[in-house]
Design a protein around this nucleic acid. Sequence first.
DNA 1: GCATTTTCTGCAATCGATTGCATCACCCCC
DNA 2: GGGGGTGATGCAATCGATTGCAGAAAATGC
Lengths: 357, 357
Amino acid sequence: MPPNRPIPDAAPPPAGRATIADVARAAGVHASTVSRALNPATRGMVTEAVALRVAEAADRLGWRPSALAAGLRTRKSRTIGILVPDLVNPIFPPIVRAAESLLAAQGYATLVANTDNDPAREEMLISRMAEHVVDGLMMASAAEGTHAIELCARFGIPTVLINRRLPGATTSAVTNDDRHGIGLAVSHLVALGHRRIAHLAGPRGVSTAIDRREGFLEALRAAGLDPGPVVDAAGYTRAAGRVAMETLLAGPSFTAASFTALVAANDMLCLGVYDVLRSRGLRAGVDLSVTGFNDMPFVDLIDPPLTTIRIQHAAMGREAAEALLAEIAEPAAPRRDTRLVPELVIRASTRAPRQEH
Amino acid sequence: MPPNRPIPDAAPPPAGRATIADVARAAGVHASTVSRALNPATRGMVTEAVALRVAEAADRLGWRPSALAAGLRTRKSRTIGILVPDLVNPIFPPIVRAAESLLAAQGYATLVANTDNDPAREEMLISRMAEHVVDGLMMASAAEGTHAIELCARFGIPTVLINRRLPGATTSAVTNDDRHGIGLAVSHLVALGHRRIAHLAGPRGVSTAIDRREGFLEALRAAGLDPGPVVDAAGYTRAAGRVAMETLLAGPSFTAASFTALVAANDMLCLGVYDVLRSRGLRAGVDLSVTGFNDMPFVDLIDPPLTTIRIQHAAMGREAAEALLAEIAEPAAPRRDTRLVPELVIRASTRAPRQEH
DNA sequence: GCATTTTCTGCAATCGATTGCATCACCCCC
DNA sequence: GGGGGTGATGCAATCGATTGCAGAAAATGC
C-alpha cells in the first residue's frame, strides 16, 4: 500500500476544517463543480440548482477557502505588502490605514512591516514578502542607495512608491508636490514680512528632503530674496531636529540679524526645534516663526500650534492602493506618477517679524 | 496524453521563479533532498557536501521558498494577524510596531487590519485571517457583545488579547493594570489637595473603561472621599470627549463647588476636554486639573502638557507576541494573563486647587 | 568476510483549490 | 430518428514544498 494514504473511503469526519472535497461529498457533486459554484467568476458555468445546493452545503459545513491552496495554484495570494520606515512616525498610520481599508474592501489582506530605514532589513523584508507571494508592494521607505526596486523587479512584484520618489525609477509613485508645498510656506512667511529665512532640511538621499530643499531655494529666488542658512538633519526625527537646530543657532550667533523665520522639512523636526527654543527661553511664533510639513496629527495641539503644510495622508494611501491594483490588473498599463497637492495651514507658530528699530 | 502536461523533459528554462525542483536539477539531487538541505531543522539529515552543493545551487538560481506551498503542506503560514480598532489612534502604532519587530525576527510576517470597532467588520476580518491560515491572532479590539473569540476558537486560531480583556475569556491577554493606573491619578490629585474629582469614563462594554471607572471609585473610597460626577463617553475619541465634557459641565452648573479635577479614562478624551475648556475661556491646570491615560505620543507637547498614566506600549506588543508564539509552540500550555504596570507622569495639567476663601 | 546497523537519498503521496479537456445528457432540427 | 450543437459536470493534472517509508550505501560488529 502506498505510504501516507488514509484508509480508503474512511469518510473523514468533520475533523479540522472542511475542504472543498467535503463540500463536494455533502452536495453530491465533484470538487471542481464546487469550486466553480462558489467562485463568483465561474458561478455562471453551473446550474442554478447545483449552485444553491453547493452553497448550502458549504455554509452548513462552515467551509472557508484556503488562500494558501488557491494561491499556490493561481499564483496570487490576494495579499499586498506595505513597507514603512517606522509605523510610529505619525504620518504613516493614516496612509497605511487608508490603504488597508481600500484593499480589504477589494478582498486583499495587508502585510505590514517596518524597515527602520535599514537597507539590509528592507531587503530581507522584501524577500520575505516575495516568499509570501504578495500580489503587490507599497513602499514608503524608498531611499537612494538601496536595491529595493531592483529586488522587487527581480521577484516580479508590482510596486508603488508612497511619499518618496526615486530618481530614475520606472515604478508608479504617489507623492506630494513637495516643491509646491514648501513654496506655500515660504510665500506665507514672505507675506508676513520675513526677509531672512532659514531652512532645516531633511536627511540626504531622500526625495522629500531634496525636493523641499530645492523648492525652498527656488521660492526664495522667485521672491527675490537670498536664502538664509540651511542645515541638514540626520533623519526625520525629533532628536535630529534638535541637533540640527542647535548647529543652526550655534553658527553665526543667533541674533535677530541672522534669520527671523525657519522653514523645516517636516513636522517631526519642528518638535526638536521647539525643544531647543524652549531650552533657550525663546518662543516659536514670537522670537522665531517656524513652519513644518505634513500636518501630522496633534501638531494643532502643541504649544504654539504649528503652521504647516497639510498633505493628503488618506488620499495618498488610497491612491497608492488603487494604482497598485490597477497595475496588478493590467501589468502592461503605463506607470502613474501621482502628485498630490498640499495646502498651507496657518497657526500660531508664524507671525510677522518684530519691527527692527 | 494527459492534459496540462508540458512537453516531457523540456527542461523549463529560468522562466519565472526557481522552484525546489530547479534547484534539485542544478545540484543533481532529488527535490526532497533539497528540502532537507535547506531547512535548518532537517539540515542534519544530509551530508555536508550535498548541503553545500544544494545551498550553492539555490542561491545561484536565486531560489526563495514559497510560503504558500510550504504552508499548504504544513498547515502553518508563518503569518500572524493583528486586529486593531483603528491604526490612527496613536496608542496602537507602538504596540503593532513592537509586535511586528519581534515577529519579523522570528520569521513571521504580520497581517494588519482595522476593525473600526464594527463587530461585523471584525468577524469578516477574522474569517479572512482564517482563510490566510494565520498561525495566530492578536486582537486589540475586544469588546463585549461580539463573537470574535468564539470565531477564533472555531477556526482553531491561537489568540491573544491586547490592551483590552474580555470577562470570561479563556484566551491569553496582555493588558494594563487599569485599576492601579487610575488609582495613581486619583492619589496624585488628592495629594495636591483636590477633594471633588469627576470622572470622564470610556465607552460601555470595553474592559479598559469598566476597570478604570471601578478603579476610580475604589481609589476615592480608599481616600475617604465621595466621587464627583461620572459621565460615559461614547467612544475613545476627541469628539466623544468633547460631547461628554459638555454634559459634564452642563449638569449642575459648573462652579468651583462642583469639581476641581477631572480624571479621564484616556488621553484622546482629554483632547476633547481641552477643546471645551478652551471654548469657554478656561484653562486646564489652572481652572481645572485634568489627567489622561496612556501617555500617547505628543501629549507632552500639547498645551498644557498633560499629566497622564504612562503605559508600556512597546512591552505590550512584545509580550503579546511572545505569549502568542509560546501558545503556538505549546498549545496545551496554560494561558497567560499579563498585567503591565503603568506609571504616573506629572505635567502641567494638574495643580493644587485654588484656595477657596 | 559476512551480517547487521546506521546513514543518507530517492520515491511518491500529500496539502486544498483551480482549470483544460473530455464526456455525457439533452435539445433542436431537418 | 439520427446528426450536430450546446451546456453542465467530471476527470485528472497542477501549483511547490514536505515527509513517511523504502532502498542503497556505508559503517560497524563479531
